[in-house]
Nucleic acid binder design. Structure first.
Length: 257
DNA sequence: ATGGTCGGCAACCGA
């Protein structure tokens, strides 16, 4: 099984990038974040045409998550609960026998702000969500834009960036609590090299060339599934004329059971 | 010195 995640920053603006990448890599599952489209306007047809089903949960302008899958998406659920709380940031489905959770964690603005506290609260709600709905002893995949670089190796200058949003001790503590519930960072299990990033600030000129990156997009799995992982990588091979930062798919492969 | 640039969408907001 091959799974991937990509913060698409508007599915409509980057549809051809995503479609071409699916045709090239043929993953079983692709999780998207920041689709920025209400469900009634999600471009479902182009995925269907190349043999992929989709489940999506979005809104106008902001947020939005989608799961694209070769196999049928069963038991699709949106948000933390049956009332659909935070539905544009969390979607889950069962693919084959494996539950897949796709999240777009709040960005958090700046440490000390209300939105930063809301991000930490959101991570605590996510902990409760995993605890209430899943077991660390069973296969479970969590993919998405976590908006946190967990370890010093995951940012270009940890000493300088420590305390910034996305690399803050409070974020680390709240994310670690979820990890200790029972997740393995599947990418880091397979790739030990530094300099592996999925995000570069748009506002920094030539950030990709200068390697000013962050690894904030992740593929995590519970132990029984993580054990079966064989390979992980970040695919950022832009086509001619594309920005490399518009083309950052994090990918992992697992052996069949 | 406290920027920069994207996408959405129609003035700024969020990242």
């Amino acid at each position: 099984m091959k799974v991937a995640s990509f913060n698409v920053n508007s599915i409509r603006a980057r549809l051809s990038i995503v479609i071409d990448w699916l045709k090239k890599e043929a993953p079983d599952v692709l999780c998207l974040q920041e689709t920025k489209v209400p469900d009634e306007a999600f471009p479902e047809a182009p995925f269907k045409e190349i043999g992929y089903s989709s489940a999506f949960s979005g809104e106008k302008t902001y947020n939005g998550v989608a799961i694209i899958s070769k196999r049928p998406l069963k038991n699709v659920k949106k948000g933390f609960d049956d009332r659909g709380s935070e539905a544009s940031r969390l979607i889950s489905a069962v693919i084959g026998t494996v539950p897949v959770v796709n999240t777009y964690v709040p960005q958090g603005f700046h440490p000390g702000s209300d939105r930063f506290r809301a991000k930490l609260d959101w991570l605590d709600r996510l902990y409760d969500y995993f605890n209430a709905n899943f077991s660390p002893e069973e296969p479970l995949l969590w993919l998405g834009d976590f908006n946190v670089a967990p370890e010093p190796i995951d940012v270009y200058d940890p000493a300088h960036l420590l305390g910034s949003v996305g690399f803050h001790p409070d974020e680390h503590a709240h994310l670690k609590r979820i990890k200790e519930w029972g997740f393995v960072d599947v990418f880091r299990l397979n790739v030990k090299e530094p300099g592996q990033y999925t995000f570069w600030d748009y506002r920094v000129r030539n950030a990709v060339d200068k390697k000013l990156g962050w690894r904030v997009d992740h593929i995590w799995a519970t132990r029984p599934l993580a054990k079966r992982s064989t390979r992980a990588w970040i695919d950022m091979e832009p086509r001619l004329g594309e920005r490399p930062s518009d083309h950052t798919f994090i990918v992992a492969e697992f052996k069949p059971r």
